[in-house]
Design a protein around this nucleic acid. Sequence first.
DNA 1: GTCCAGAAAATTGTTGACATTTTACAAAAT
DNA 2: ATTTTGTAAAATGTCAACAATTTTCTGGAC
Lengths: 227, 227
Amino acid sequence: MFSGRTLADRAFEWLEEAIIKGDYPPEAKLDEVALAKSFGISRGPVREAIRRLEGKKLVERVPHVGARVAALNPSDLADILSVREALEGMACRLATERMSDAEIKELENLLDQHADQGGLKSGANYYQNPGDYDFHFRIIQGSRNAKLIEMLCNDLYYLLRVYRYRSSSRKGRAKEAFQEHQDVVAAMKARDPDAAEAAMRTHLHHALLSIQNEQVPLPRPKRLQKA
Amino acid sequence: MFSGRTLADRAFEWLEEAIIKGDYPPEAKLDEVALAKSFGISRGPVREAIRRLEGKKLVERVPHVGARVAALNPSDLADILSVREALEGMACRLATERMSDAEIKELENLLDQHADQGGLKSGANYYQNPGDYDFHFRIIQGSRNAKLIEMLCNDLYYLLRVYRYRSSSRKGRAKEAFQEHQDVVAAMKARDPDAAEAAMRTHLHHALLSIQNEQVPLPRPKRLQKA
DNA sequence: GTCCAGAAAATTGTTGACATTTTACAAAAT
DNA sequence: ATTTTGTAAAATGTCAACAATTTTCTGGAC
């Protein structure tokens, strides 16, 4: 059923995926005996899986009471988005320095595809859809920074996903987002790390403002100066 | 002996501290029976503590073989320092927006103390000493961003500490670092988040270059433009 | 001396039983 | 009716024994 070799590892993978998928929403109780029974194993490996998730901060535990899927208060959202802005801005800088011409060209093609096959036409659908995800994902990978990749794609992924349903569906945001993507790629093509980082941060900061108050975001620092 | 209520929690705290202090260096084997015996408990809680550390990525585990303190290859160092630059730059930006005048004044006094009581005189001692640590710590706290504080003070702390002994002791770096600290505070006093973030990133980037090749770092982007 | 079984030892993985604590429920008092 | 209190039930914490795997050791063949 799963790849992990030990029962504890398999339980961990199963549980992590279930939490990320939303099968276990925030605050949901993780009942050891129920989980053990549903996995057909004993409580030992289940407890170890829960402990690992606790270390990852996906679940919170109260001694003698139990473990629950980590809760997220609204103020956490702003905190997380600032972290994402900082990390993904850095990732975009590094990607601009490290991605090959061919890779950047692929990125450009990706945007062209979105424009062609109704990405823009479908309006509000472009922003924060699989296409948007793929765009960000590729740039993060292009940073060649393992820690950055891990933090953005693994550690923050669950948190961003939990809040996704709140994300702005404001009219016109899709078009803006698409334009911002193009700005990012333009800076990368020009091999201008400062501009690329600034463009990515502007994009993400607009998303933050858009989510926070469903309003037109005010402009923010556009780029890092050369020297 | 320890605050945690359950044996597993106490074992976790003890082990985490031991790893951070360096009592268990990278690659060190974590023997379940030996640890259980030294704690006077059974293997169950010890395994749970190790699983939690695994989730925190402080230890690496190979099924049926065992757990070791996480190893750090040299390329990890550069990756981590880039992450720190991004996160602490953002922290400095937010601190500039959110710290009170009194708090910023305290920060300034802290630097004055360092200058007076031999911080500068002792030369190479100023850079990356407790004083340097306190300076960075206060700014991070000033960001009022719980995620940022957690990532910098908890998650990255061990990694940065492990590599500390490698850090540059180059002549003159101390004086430079002190000056860079003053640049940061100056920007914060002026309530210029762009300049503050840029100054902090310059400071950290110089440290990165200094560590990497023990050479005079070249200047990097100095500040974020206003609009 | 080196290499290759194969057994023995040591280590990790898993389980079921028991201990402890919390929670749920019901009866009694106000 | 509400609160309180005590008991029962359920959940978590811990342990010791057993199972499975890896590692080490030993003996022998070449």
